[in-house]
Design a binder for these strands. Sequence first.
DNA 1: GGTTGCGTTGGAAGCGCTTCCATGTAACCA
DNA 2: TGGTTACATGGAAGCGCTTCCAACGCAACC
Lengths: 360, 360
Amino acid sequence: MTWEDRLQTEVRGLRSLAEEEAVADDVTLDDVARKSGVSRATASRALNGRDGVRGDVRERVEMIAKALGYRPNRTAKRLAGGTTSVIGFVLGSNDILGDSYAISLMQGIARAADRLDEGLMLLMDSAEPSVSVRNLISDGLVDGVVISAVAVGERWVEDLLDARVPTVLVGAHPRRSDVHVIDVENRNSSAELVGAMLDADCERVCTVAGPLERVDATLRLEGFRLAHEIRGLTVDDASIIHGDFSRASGYANVDAVLRAKPDGVFAANDEMALGLLRGFTEQGRDVPHDIMLAGFDGTACEGEGISLATVRQPFDQLALTAVETLTALIRGEPVPLEQVVNPEVVLGDSVRRREDLPEW
Amino acid sequence: MTWEDRLQTEVRGLRSLAEEEAVADDVTLDDVARKSGVSRATASRALNGRDGVRGDVRERVEMIAKALGYRPNRTAKRLAGGTTSVIGFVLGSNDILGDSYAISLMQGIARAADRLDEGLMLLMDSAEPSVSVRNLISDGLVDGVVISAVAVGERWVEDLLDARVPTVLVGAHPRRSDVHVIDVENRNSSAELVGAMLDADCERVCTVAGPLERVDATLRLEGFRLAHEIRGLTVDDASIIHGDFSRASGYANVDAVLRAKPDGVFAANDEMALGLLRGFTEQGRDVPHDIMLAGFDGTACEGEGISLATVRQPFDQLALTAVETLTALIRGEPVPLEQVVNPEVVLGDSVRRREDLPEW
DNA sequence: GGTTGCGTTGGAAGCGCTTCCATGTAACCA
DNA sequence: TGGTTACATGGAAGCGCTTCCAACGCAACC
């Protein structure tokens, strides 16, 4: 029986042992080290990929760790000066119930964190002195945070960015350029979508823009303009209506939109598109026959009962990139300041070429 | 200058010092102890409310701690055998975008945690081996978890309940009685709401029930029955339609509902109610003139453009109770196995007494 | 006035990990 | 072959906290 065989056998033993005990709780680094016949220091180095460990030793340690079902205690890890592998995501204090973008992003982040084996803390921007978020960081619970650009402008965001806490922003920052940013491509994708409406023989497309202090809203509006420009069309002011990204604001702008007499509407996000849709339906306007409709985000879920033309944000990819970037940042690796992820332009039933529409 | 005065002065000095330094990071227990002229042990006892500390000493320590802006390092606290003051909330792996209940609950928990100065980790029930959640616990990151009854039946929930992890369930468990449960009162409140429809001169009210393997769905259906019973009315099977709590299922059941020819519908949650509403609108049925509509949960937000009669879950209270219960559980204090929170029955515009309705 | 007993306090160990530093060993050059 | 370098490893310190235990002082008691 070779040494290898002996190891194999032993490992098998350990494994079944671990399985028997339902969950082999509290296997410490010490246990792994002892079983492997090395010191804690070496075991630590081996498992963390530090160099200065002989190849076979590393393998053996890794094997035994796995067999024992060893999971490093993150608390201890953190305390010892390492990192927790826990990141934070900040939730604003206002309701997110109607904010499908925030929800999708949050879920994306949760998925990404899970996938990368990072813990995820939900930080709450409490109404009180903006210390809350800072505190959670200094409490030593998280190594860094992901924040949504939606929150930009709030005091704690700036605090956070000023403090040297590793931070990744999903969405652009209107003023600062020293921030690590992940964003979806807004301009061209909007232009493509609007272009699709124009090419589907829309005579007059108007848009309900988002709040223009937000970069994404601005870019989407630019995209709207760009699509016209490319086709040699001009955009008059009347065709630009201003909303605030909420569903209610979509609904509230129905009349304003109809006054512009468009046969196509590009809402700067899906929420507003759904608000518009309800208004159109109530007024007996059919989508897409009477008026085509497009949104942005891809957050209108099936329950809404429409396959809305939209620019679908790749939330999972966006989130994964954000979390990966953040962990790289935490490890002190160099990362690009800005990363753009391409979304998918989806033409749902709400935008169809006229000739493709079934007889009315 | 008395000793007291000296202390006051010193404290003022410290305070302004702390404020100057923007955020007085890394003030350790040691600092507090030294400044207070006591040992770390005593300082710890004082700040944690352990007894065996003289009154004036405790006061002094507390004062100095505050002045210095001391925040205990939760990581260290945890490692030393204390608790982290971090709890977990488990997010299912399926989309929550359309699940307004889950979102509201989560946000409630986040608020409650923030208010009670508990950290909140978002645990993800990843599709993989159900170890994920367990792991996060054994990683030593959280002291306990809150889970939504929605997840009951999934393997990890049972695992969790079996393992001696402090757990609080929001919503009832259909089978186990050894679980700490916080729930909203479902039965009577449903009955009250349905009763309001009946009393508003509805001739025939039917219901779209939720999935009956869920306790809340069952109770709401019972409430529906109860309301009829009280009034000496009978409920025929045709007036009970079965949905699955999703908006899509509400919409999908529109025809089934209309076939029952009701002039009032009680959907077992708001999502289904909104699905129904869309269907009704599409078919030209006006709510509430042609048909009254009620839901449950109170999660239909203003953006939906209807003030829906509903039973409004007190999410904040529910969550606060849950988190408080959990922390008590963690501290080892005795807590009642079951707690019921009373919701508020809200009659929106979708349920009105016939005579109160404006002329059609 | 000596003793018991209680309430307060400080010293020290230890939670599980990382990492510095010193030691040991093998490989290298002259 | 001696001396040097490079690498692999173990010992030990320490992260900030809690808590056990022993020591202390003090009041009340006989």
